[in-house]
């Protein structure tokens, strides 16, 4: 079971941070954060960028931990597979949460 978890951990945390960022974005829009200025941007932008950064750091941490002697998997295959999915988690965080840096806050569509 630990080996299965090792393989699933990074993408699971991606899913958690992805959903959390989406939720944070919803709450921020509901509470009007884009209108409160902070450090040259808005509270909204700062909060979401922070969330993104934290998510990236978590993924990097998993990669480092999986490389460490203490937490590496016993078999070569599980070690390889867990590193592969850890990279998936990192790329997924970078790829799917990047809109927090570039897209207008809370604009409707159409």
């Amino acid at each position: 079971m630990k080996d299965v978890l090792r393989i699933l951990l990074a993408p699971l945390l991606w899913l958690a941070s992805f959903s959390a960022t989406y939720g944070l974005h919803g709450i921020g829009c509901a509470l009007g954060w884009p209108e409160i200025a902070l450090w040259g941007a808005s509270v909204f932008r700062v909060a979401l960028l922070t969330a993104w950064l934290v998510a990236i750091l978590i993924q990097v941490a998993i990669l480092i931990v999986l490389h460490s002697d203490r937490f590496r998997a016993a078999s070569a295959f599980t070690q390889w597979a867990s590193l592969a999915t850890a990279w998936v988690g990192l790329v997924a965080v970078l790829w799917t949460v990047y809109p927090v840096a570039v897209i207008t806050a809370c604009g409707g569509n159409g």
């Binding site: 989406y22 919803g26 927090v100 897209i103």
Partner: peptide
Amino acid sequence: TGIPLMGLAFFSAASTL
């Protein structure tokens, strides 16, 4: 459904990934 564009952008990016 009228979800803000940034929300859509997350899912658009995930959909291509």
